[in-house]
Design a binder for these strands. Structure first.
Lengths: 357, 357
DNA sequence: TGTTAGCACTCACCTCGGTCGAGTGCTAAT
DNA sequence: ATTAGCACTCGACCGAGGTGAGTGCTAACA
């Protein structure tokens, strides 16, 4: 595997990524300044095919990269194109300033922006660090008749809240009692260990009404579940139709359907990452776990929004996606994110209020 | 315009809705048990075309309904097919039991279910009753270091909340003071009238720190804005690709793009309704405000989730959509909704907690 | 007078053969 | 090791001809 072969392979993949058409020897001979004739290129191409980096759709067509070819390209061939869209960077910066409790809002805006910049569908999801969500603090307030809000702060730093219905005849006093008791007793408890048995135990404490306690506990459990489930966003599904590999509408429909199936797409994107230990992951065609994804590639990256929130953003495209560009966009986003940290703790409130009217 | 013409028109539209192909006289002659020859049908068709109910794509093709034809069909011709998908009804019932603060969650599930049942894209949005959101109550709690939660209850009954960042050196006492002041002063105030001037006025009150007050007010304004913007959901965009009228991928891309543009689709669906005063609206092709929607029809309906929450659900499809079926589904949904009311106030908490683990 | 049979006509769509051209693999010359 | 030359492959494109569904019109019919 000499250097020349690598150069040729890179040129072929570059070209194919751009055009989507099988690329021929003549084309490469011209584009590459190696002063080689098409015939020589052809020989090299035959070799590369034998080695499994290229494929031929049919005898008299040009060559197309194989998954293995893309992998080599991504790992060591491609030249990271400089991404320098000032406007995009500015928009990113603005989005990342979204305040701390607006994680979901931030994700939504980020998916939108990235899908516009890259021209691919985007998926973004908040990562949870394992199953163990340990309660740090529980608060409970009456907010309206029959309605109370329960707010759970976890050790991992996330804050869930939920409105619950409580009996109409519950007095402020009774609610306070429940609140005080929970605040004391639930510290350090895992959310997943909350169940009816616990409710029964707790309700033994003097003055605790079980009919207030139960909805509260239920609210705690659900607030967390909803949080997880909900925090997956996709955008730019329409971009799927941009690429000839999905011109077959059945295929396009399948992919768009997958993008709409939040749980599914979340799994795909989180599982793929389990394999490796970098912070930028690329999964190409057959490397994807799910076989429905075999025609797609995913480039994903994680971001630490702050000390306790980690986010995963993935770009989904055809195998022929513009890896160089996508990677550079995701990296730029990361650097913007790092600069962000300072600002987020210092929101310039006044100005905002006016602007929001 | 005699009765026979109407029967023929209905048959033509029924047929066209089913097949999507221009329908010919022979076809109708057979399908209809009027014992009329194709020639007669042809004459009638020519009349109907003259009257503007039918169109001819080209001379030697069959007839296709015009927007006017569809309108007549929807208003007085179509026979409301009985929808009776037990499974679907059960799922609806289950979804509608989602608890009161889970409006967004409910909407998401409803869009999903309806898109599956109908095979069309669905849009759902929470309606706000005008611009006037009057504050009933404001509460403020510290939930973590530097983080507080502000909860706004409005006269219309909706509850918004938001986590805000406050200065690290704010004491519980200072926060309480702000909370008490706001609770007293903001009652009856319109959210939209909150601005920096108000902040300045309020901060004059003894012991109020402006650097706590400002983020809180900002939080109030934003919580509401976010609420509005966010509560629009779409699902089933993939279904667009099911229909030959969108086999042109540019057209499909456009529509899917519109569905992803939440603000836009929300406008389309809310504006259309302004025209009329029923609770089930149908907008056909050119009747749509936005010209990008001229190839689509929308069937929409409003639902009162409870006394203070009204929701709008719209089904978007090609003009050739199966109006009868869609209308019946939306109506069934409404009847399920009515039965719901009682249950929602009586959540059976215990069982849920176990199930959720 | 409304209905129908018959007929000529239109037009999208399918199929089929032919041509074109991009691309290959192989061989022989450099 | 490289290249020129050449025969070959195969999808894409094109135009001609045939097919069939459907029409409008006219004249006959009940």
């Amino acid at each position: 595997m000499d250097d020349r072969k690598l150069k040729i392979l890179e040129a072929i993949i570059d070209e194919y990524i751009q055009t989507g058409e099988p690329v021929g020897s003549r084309n490469i001979s011209k584009k590459l300044d190696l002063k080689l004739s098409p015939a020589t290129i052809r020989n090299e191409m035959a070799d590369l095919e034998e080695m499994g980096y290229l494929e031929q759709p049919h005898t008299s067509a040009g060559r197309v990269p194989s998954d293995r070819g893309y992998r080599l390209y991504v790992d060591s061939l491609m030249s990271p194109r400089q991404f320098d869209d000032q406007e995009g960077l500015a928009a990113m910066t603005e989005i990342l300033h979204s305040k701390i409790d607006e994680l979901s809002y931030m994700l939504q805006r980020a998916t939108r922006l990235l899908s516009q910049i890259t021209g691919y569908p985007i998926v973004a999801t908040a990562k949870t660090d394992g199953d163990t969500e340990i309660i740090k603090n529980v608060q409970l307030f009456l907010v309206d008749v029959e309605k109370a809000m329960v707010v759970v702060t976890t050790e991992s730093g996330s804050i869930h809240n939920r409105i619950i219905l409580i009996p109409a005849d519950a007095t402020q006093d009774q609610v306070d009692k429940v609140a005080k008791m929970l605040s004391a007793k639930l510290h350090g408890v895992e959310i997943s260990s909350i169940d009816v048995a616990l409710a029964n135990t707790l309700s033994k404490i003097e003055g605790i009404r079980i009919d207030i306690l139960l909805p509260v506990l239920q609210g705690i459990v659900e607030s967390r579940r909803r949080n997880e489930e909900h925090r997956t966003y996709t955008d730019g599904a329409k971009n799927v139709l941009e690429y000839p590999e999905f011109s077959d509408s059945a295929r396009a429909k399948e992919l768009i359907g997958m993008l709409e199936e939040k749980g599914f797409i979340r799994d795909v994107v989180t599982h793929m990452e389990m394999d490796q230990e970098q912070d930028l992951y690329v999964s190409i065609g057959s490397e994807n776990q799910d076989e429905k994804m075999q025609d797609c590639s995913i480039v994903a990256s994680t971001y630490d929004v702050d000390s306790s929130h980690r986010v995963l953003i993935g770009v989904i495209g055809p195998k022929r996606m513009d890896y160089a560009r996508v990677v550079s966009v995701l990296k730029d986003m990361k650097s913007v994110m790092n600069r962000r940290e300072i600002k987020s703790l210092n929101p310039d409130s006044g100005a905002h209020i006016e602007g929001d009217k």
